[in-house]
Computed example of a mutant assay.
Amino acid sequence: MALLNFKKRADTAKSVNPQIEALLQGYSIEVMPRTAEKVDNFRDLLPEGTRVYIAHIEGTPIEDMVATARRIAREGYPVMPHFPARIIKDEATLADWIERYQGEAGVDQALLLAGGVAKPFGDFDSSMQLMQTGLFEKAGFKRLHVAGHPEGSRDIDPDGGYDNVWEALRWKQAYCESTDAEMALATQFAFDAKPIIKWADNLKAEGITMPVHIGIAGPAKLQTLIKFAIACGVGPSLKVLQKRAMDVSKLLLPYEPTEVLADLAAHKAAHPDFNIERVHFFPLGGIKTNATWAIENGGASGVPAAQTQQG
């Protein structure tokens, strides 16, 4: 039934913006164990080869994380679990997590980040300390992503500045140049293309050449997005949502990322050396809602694996 619905939508859908279609090629998406449980089969929703990040929220047992990774890998998708430094007790715990993911789910890639916890549980405070252990290289991980913050980070620079953020990026760039693993910057979501473009250009000016996988919030109720944006410290682009909230005609309509993606896609088309390589979706309105939007707006880049297989 799901495939028939997708085909029906495809037959009646509006024309696809070819620039958005190009930008969405190889997009990734984020899930949590509890949200993944709501999906019967990811192949009905996601294109073949879609990288699926698994967010590790404070309090989630590692057993649930590994079980989710194993399930998604069995459905044919590359899995990238989060390793939040501040909730990992010590090096032995880190080694155990790596061994479990690798041994039980075949994981060979990871997103390393500090994690949104004010006080570390144990020995680690930053993603850089995780890298310094050498455990990911020892395990033969092929890809490591690290966090990027187009609008700054209160966790790294509590005063609202950018000095520590840039210092951390320079360190990560140096690490990138010393490791065999493929690396990229996976960013916090934003709602306005202008600060994203400015930040990406500043990366190049600072000698940061890691490709960017830009965070984009998927379709969701406006109130939901504002709540998450405030909680995650989204900066100037939050004004896009606040302005929308003041428009009574749009207040009750769900937000869709069409405008910000169209602006980024147009900029990339006009500047082929633009260093945003991929889109990474935060499905704040639900995985199915996000995947459906990609199917309807992404053209060939959004076709789910099951539909491709059937065709």
Rank of each mutant, 00 (worst) to 15 (best):
A2S: 02
L3D: 02
F6P: 04
K8W: 15
A13F: 11
A13P: 02
K14N: 10
V16M: 08
N17C: 03
A22K: 10
Y27R: 00
V31P: 05
E48M: 09
R51A: 06
R51V: 15
A55Y: 14
A55F: 14
I62S: 01
R70K: 07
I72H: 07
F83K: 03
F83Q: 07
I87E: 06
K89V: 02
D90K: 06
I98G: 07
A105I: 04
A114Y: 10
V117K: 15
F124H: 14
Q129W: 02
L130I: 00
L135C: 12
F141L: 03
K142L: 14
L144P: 00
H145S: 14
V146Y: 02
V146F: 08
A147D: 10
S153E: 11
D155A: 13
L169K: 12
Q173T: 03
A174H: 10
E182M: 11
E182S: 15
A184M: 12
A184Q: 05
K194T: 15
D201T: 06
T209G: 12
A217Y: 03
I230F: 12
I230V: 14
P236G: 09
V240R: 05
Q242T: 15
D247K: 11
L251Q: 12
E256I: 11
V260M: 00
F274A: 01
E277P: 00
G285D: 08
T289G: 12
T292H: 00
W293R: 00
G299Y: 05
Q310C: 09
